[in-house]
Amino acid sequence: MNEKDDNKDFLKSDSEFTGGADNEKLRSLLRTWQAPDAPSALDTRVLAAYRRRNTLPTWRRMVTATIPVPAPVAMIFVVLLLASALLAARALRSGELKPDRTITSAAQTKTTEAPANQEKAPAFEVNSPGSVTETVRNDSSAPIAGRAAGSMDAGRSEVIPRVAKPASLKTVGKVHVLSIESDHGTIQLVTGDEYRLSATPKIYAGGYSKPSNERRLP
């Protein structure tokens, strides 16, 4: 069949395709092949399927519901999911990803000023020249027994806190963020899924410290 014939055919309308003696002959010949009637089993199958569908409880319909998603969209979604999981795992492994629990709602944050008369009951202790000791109690007056001990170089105002009794920090209960502010700086304890202690001394040994120093507790 050459292209000319095809082009001539494109110009024909439905009626021209239908009409013509040749086409009529061919059509009557084709009609000698008749398709059988649809079997009655088909009626039963279709009706049964419809009834099954309608009698399904709503919860089951919800569970078995399907959403057609184009394959490329599904592929992109899976790739994005894998990539984000990979990045998150890598970040966690290298310690880059630390959940910032200091940004919480006001209801979750409690700041306790260290009272001057409780200074002898140490909760967090920062060992340094001229040692600073702070005592903190929560609202229920139960002593917070966690103890942090840090070391600081004489010339550098960097505090690296260390926790002596991490298990006892569980007694903190609902307190998620506990801040201790003193003239020397701020010590912050974050509880929740994991404990984190950070110390931000203001002035020490005659100079300014680094703004923050954190250590995640086990």
Binding site: W33, A35, P36, D37, A38, P39, A41, L42, R45, V46, A49, Y50, R53
Partner: peptide, 29 residues
Amino acid sequence: DPTFHFAYRMLGSAEQAEDVTHDCFLSLI
């Protein structure tokens, strides 16, 4: 019938045409 006949003439098998027609209506349901 039109759906079944079409499937039958395409496949040449009544059994397969029945399955195809059933699947068509099933997808509609």
